[in-house]
């Protein structure tokens, strides 16, 4: 890599006295003194959260109230600070989601570890985990800052679904002659 020596412009006498610069600076700060305040008064005023903001990771349900996560553990795998901990479980019985077979028994995200990178959202094949607009996380103990499954669904709520993949699958199963031996 070639180096270009840049000659610094010699300072004029006025510049060497600092005074014009100091005076200019004083004028700038004076403008701010009378200018508009830019502070957001936080608890009362809240910042507008832009779409695509990466807030606290949350779990979402589809519009039919089905929990979308199937505990594939890809988010746990991809999570750089290892903040996610999933205990997989099986959906047993004959409930409406029994054909999905798998769901998390426990799902914990340690917000003390989370770095809000959004890789979990990116990797999720079921579109079940989203970094939404919750940005304020606080608690009195470390345990409080580990979001469990219940808290995650409470934070996440319901998001629209474009695919209804499992519903389609169920419809196909009920139409199929060989699905139920």
């Amino acid at each position: 890599m070639s180096v270009i020596q840049v000659q610094r412009k010699p300072l004029t006498f006025a510049e060497r006295t600092y005074l014009p610069q100091v005076f200019g600076g004083l004028m700038i700060t004076l403008r701010h003194f009378f200018g508009r305040r830019v502070t957001l008064e936080y608890p009362e005023q809240r910042p507008e959260i832009a779409p695509g903001y990466r807030g606290v990771p949350t779990l979402v349900k589809d519009p039919n109230g089905r929990e979308k996560c199937v505990s594939c553990q890809l988010c746990e795998f991809v999570c750089p600070p290892k903040a996610i901990r999933i205990t997989p479980g099986e959906i047993s019985g004959d409930g409406p989601s029994a054909h999905v077979e798998k769901a998390p028994r426990e799902f914990e995200i340690n917000m003390l570890r989370c770095i809000y990178c959004g890789l979990c959202q990116e990797v999720c094949p079921e579109e079940a985990i989203f970094l939404q607009n919750v940005y304020s996380v606080s608690g009195y103990s470390r345990d409080e800052l580990v979001n469990d499954k219940e808290k995650l669904y409470q934070l996440g709520g319901t998001l629209p679904d474009r695919h209804f993949k499992w519903d389609k699958k169920q419809a196909a199963a009920s139409a199929s002659p060989i699905a139920h031996p």
Binding site: T29, L30, H32, F33, G35, R36, R37, V38, T39, E41
Partner: peptide, 10 residues
Amino acid sequence: KVSAWLQGRY
């Protein structure tokens, strides 16, 4: 207060 005002804060 003055420092805040000079910096555009409250």
